[in-house]
Amino acid sequence: MATTFHKMHGLGNDFVIFDAREADVPLDAARVRLLADRHRGIGCDQLIRLSPSDKADLLMDIWNADGGEAEACGNAARCVAALTGAKTIDSAGGLLEAEAGDDSVSITLPPPRFQWDEIPIADPMDTAPVPMAWDVLEGADAVNVGNPHLVFFVDDADAVALGEIGPQIEHDPAFPERINVNVAEVRDGRLKLRTFERGAGLTEACGTGACASAVAAIRRKLLASPVAVDMPGGSLTIHWAPGDPIVMQGAATHVFTGEVDLEALR
């Protein structure tokens, strides 16, 4: 039996979205890995399932390409809002507010968290900066924006071998829920960003990574809100003041609608 899906992306960070608000779409880690496979499945960084919610217009469940579940995904939230017109989105990372315009979507995320046990980190320690180092990367800010992030400020974001260092940091025992890794460069009053996403690897863009990095830059007084964040796939604008929610604004693109036989996946 064929199940309808939507392929969408936010600045190249791509998703397979199933709308299960009227009929269940059964998913597990193994099936997600098959669907996310770019050679044997549909291909995506994350897979999204929409379900009914008693707290919001809908519930957004998120799986990374490796089959692991994620709490938050800013780019996916923008795509879901553009696809469905939802004004409120429930997620494991908190309740999100959405506003879709003609060319962009704004998502309001809960206020960021900074305490070691809110990231979480296995042992008590400072989080701005974290007193740990991996190869050339040290002195990161730890920020939870619905999911956990480390933000390293560097002189040249392109020069960091993030594809090699990222997995080491993601799986470090210091981070019991693993962690997303960002390298950020302040350039011409903007933030240049590359992200290694937990469970997905290097991606064209990361909405929550942009939020975490902008928050860290504002806290360090490197930049003032709003912060323009440039990633390989495009740019986002992040608004934040201490104690307030985070507002992220950027594009969301519908690529195509298709059907897949979930039972035929092998």
Results as ranks from 00 to 15, higher is better:
Pro167Lys: 13
Met125Asn: 11
Asp188Ser: 11
Asp244Thr: 08
Arg178Phe: 05
Leu150Arg: 10
Ala70Trp: 05
Gly67Ala: 13
Glu99Met: 11
Ala36Tyr: 06
Gly68Ser: 15
Gly146Pro: 12
Pro148Tyr: 15
Thr3Leu: 06
Ser51Glu: 15
Arg187Leu: 10
Pro110Gly: 08
Asp24Tyr: 00
Gly74Thr: 13
Val154Tyr: 03
Arg38Val: 12
Ser106Pro: 05
Glu118Gly: 09
Arg33Asp: 04
Thr257Arg: 10
Met231Ser: 06
Gly234Ile: 04
Ile107Tyr: 15
Ala228Lys: 15
Pro112Glu: 10
Glu164Met: 12
Ile246Cys: 04
Pro167Thr: 10
Ile42Pro: 05
Val136Thr: 10
His254Tyr: 04
Glu170Gln: 01
Asp45Tyr: 00
Leu35Arg: 10
Leu262Glu: 08
Gly207Pro: 09
Arg38Met: 07
Asp117Pro: 06
Arg220Asp: 07
Gly101Tyr: 04
His9Leu: 15
Pro52Val: 07
Glu71Gln: 14
Thr127Ser: 06
Phe114Pro: 04
Asn75Arg: 09
Ala122Gln: 06
Gly43Gln: 13
Asp90Pro: 00
Ser91Phe: 02
Arg113Glu: 13
Ala214Ser: 09
Asp261Tyr: 06
Glu170Ile: 00
Arg33Met: 14
Pro112Thr: 03
Ser104Thr: 14
Ala100Leu: 04
Leu191Phe: 10
Val247Glu: 04
Asn147Met: 11
Val25Arg: 03
Gly41Gln: 09
Ala20Asn: 02
Arg266Ala: 15
Arg194Cys: 00
Ile42Arg: 06
Ser104Val: 05
Glu177Cys: 01
Ala72Lys: 04
Leu58Met: 11
Asp126Thr: 12
Ala36Pro: 09
Val154Gln: 04
Ala228Trp: 08
Gly94Ile: 00
His149Lys: 02
Ala241Ser: 15
Leu34Met: 14
Asp156Trp: 09
Gly12Ser: 02
Gly250Pro: 14
Thr127Asn: 03
Met8Glu: 08
Arg190Glu: 14
Glu71Trp: 04
His39Asn: 11
Arg38Tyr: 13
Val32Met: 02
Leu83Lys: 08
Arg31Val: 11
Lys55Leu: 13
Cys206Ile: 07
Asp54Gln: 14
Pro232Cys: 14
Ala184Pro: 01
Pro110Asn: 11
Leu34His: 13
Pro242His: 03
Arg21Thr: 11
Phe196Thr: 01
Glu185Val: 07
Val255Phe: 05
Leu59Trp: 14
Asp141Lys: 01
Ala214Asp: 02
Asn182Cys: 12
Val151Gln: 08
Ala81Ser: 13
Pro111Glu: 02
Leu27Tyr: 08
Lys192Thr: 15
Glu97His: 05
Glu69Thr: 15
Val227Cys: 15
Arg40Glu: 03
Gly146Tyr: 12
Glu185Gly: 08
Ser213Leu: 01
Leu162Ser: 00
Gly41Trp: 06
Asp24Arg: 11
Ile246Thr: 05
Glu197Phe: 03
Leu109Tyr: 13
Pro167Glu: 03
Thr203Asp: 07
Asp24Ser: 07
His171Asn: 12
Met1Ser: 13
Met125Thr: 14
Ala133Ser: 14
His9Phe: 11
Leu202Gln: 14
Asp158Lys: 13
Asp61Leu: 12
Ala81Leu: 09
Gln115Asn: 12
Ala228Ser: 10
Ala30Phe: 02
Gly85Arg: 04
Val130Ala: 04
Thr237Lys: 11
Phe175Glu: 01
Leu193Lys: 11
Leu137Arg: 09
Ala122Tyr: 00
Glu118Trp: 12
Thr203Asn: 13
Thr253Leu: 07
Val105Pro: 09
Phe196Val: 01
Gln249Phe: 00
